Amino acid sequence: MIRLAHLSDIHFGGENVAAVTGAAEVLRGGGFDLTIISGDLTQFGEIGEFEAAAAWIKTLPGPVLVTPGNHDAPYIAWFERFFSPFGRFQRLIGQVEGQTHVSPGLAVFGVNTARGVQPRANWSKGQISRRQTARARDWLCAAPEGQLKVLVCHHPLAEMIGGPMTARVWGGEAAAKAFSECRVDLVLSGHIHAPFAWPYPFGDRRTYAAGAGTLSLRERGVPAGFNIVEADEREIHVRAQAWKGSHYETSRTWSMDRRQ
């Protein structure tokens, strides 16, 4: 059994303090193979917010894989936003692109779908380039059959059905199709602040998108929370954990067939 903790959109600087503390307690007692944080660690990309995030991550049992989100580019420091949008992330958190984790039965690759600036009005939306897609596809395709193959990014590559907001990822549909053809099992993301799980409509429909909610005060119709992902040889289970003010409870579960 593979057990993953999938968190996203903590937004240090605007975090739900009790929910963040409670999540760390679950992680320390949960026996997870890997903790994944899919972006938006900070609210405004401020140095103090990154420092708080880094200190919190150090309290978690390893290993931990973290990708950036659009909020992790400085909001006020415009020179940095244009010329080194994820310099603070790299300096205080770690690798920005191409993070990997390999352990028995598990292969994970991280992609940065956030951008400091873009040639469109809403810079919060996502992008994944052909080069990023090819690099992630080739790495995951090379993983042995039978491993749980996981791609991590901040923005959902295809829109959450009925979601409270959009990601509008440039290159997202092509990437989702490529990862489906490569027989990736899961694409984990955040950004939407609401949990979901559903299959991509490509190939054998056994590549699943799953999104975690938020641990911030910026709730969008669902409580603060995160996901627990469990996979055996036959099924993948995604369990959304909802903060109840003093503890977490499973609010929804998705069960999805694995490739045989």
Rank of each mutant, 00 (worst) to 15 (best):
residue 4 L to D: 09
residue 7 L to G: 01
residue 12 F to R: 06
residue 13 G to N: 04
residue 14 G to Q: 11
residue 16 N to G: 13
residue 25 E to K: 14
residue 28 R to A: 15
residue 30 G to R: 09
residue 30 G to Y: 02
residue 31 G to D: 10
residue 32 F to W: 08
residue 36 I to F: 02
residue 38 S to N: 08
residue 38 S to C: 06
residue 39 G to E: 06
residue 41 L to K: 01
residue 43 Q to F: 00
residue 46 E to G: 02
residue 47 I to A: 14
residue 48 G to H: 14
residue 50 F to R: 02
residue 56 W to E: 11
residue 56 W to S: 01
residue 59 T to A: 09
residue 66 V to S: 03
residue 76 I to T: 13
residue 78 W to S: 06
residue 85 P to N: 08
residue 85 P to L: 07
residue 90 Q to W: 07
residue 94 G to Q: 06
residue 94 G to D: 11
residue 96 V to G: 05
residue 99 Q to H: 06
residue 100 T to W: 01
residue 106 L to S: 06
residue 106 L to H: 07
residue 110 G to C: 09
residue 111 V to E: 09
residue 111 V to Y: 04
residue 115 R to Y: 05
residue 115 R to V: 00
residue 115 R to E: 14
residue 120 R to E: 07
residue 121 A to S: 13
residue 122 N to C: 00
residue 123 W to Y: 12
residue 124 S to I: 00
residue 139 W to R: 11
residue 142 A to I: 01
residue 145 E to H: 11
residue 148 L to G: 02
residue 149 K to S: 00
residue 150 V to Y: 04
residue 152 V to I: 12
residue 152 V to Q: 01
residue 152 V to S: 01
residue 153 C to N: 11
residue 157 L to F: 08
residue 160 M to T: 02
residue 165 M to F: 04
residue 165 M to Q: 14
residue 166 T to V: 09
residue 168 R to W: 12
residue 169 V to Q: 04
residue 170 W to H: 11
residue 171 G to H: 06
residue 174 A to W: 05
residue 174 A to P: 01
residue 174 A to I: 01
residue 180 S to T: 11
residue 189 S to I: 01
residue 192 I to F: 05
residue 192 I to G: 00
residue 198 W to R: 15
residue 199 P to N: 14
residue 199 P to S: 14
residue 199 P to I: 12
residue 202 F to D: 09
residue 202 F to T: 11
residue 209 A to Q: 15
residue 210 A to E: 03
residue 213 G to D: 12
residue 214 T to P: 00
residue 215 L to Q: 07
residue 216 S to H: 07
residue 220 R to E: 13
residue 220 R to M: 13
residue 221 G to R: 14
residue 223 P to Q: 10
residue 226 F to T: 02
residue 226 F to E: 05
residue 228 I to Q: 10
residue 229 V to Q: 00
residue 235 E to G: 00
residue 244 K to Q: 15
residue 245 G to F: 04
residue 256 M to E: 04
residue 256 M to I: 10
residue 258 R to A: 08
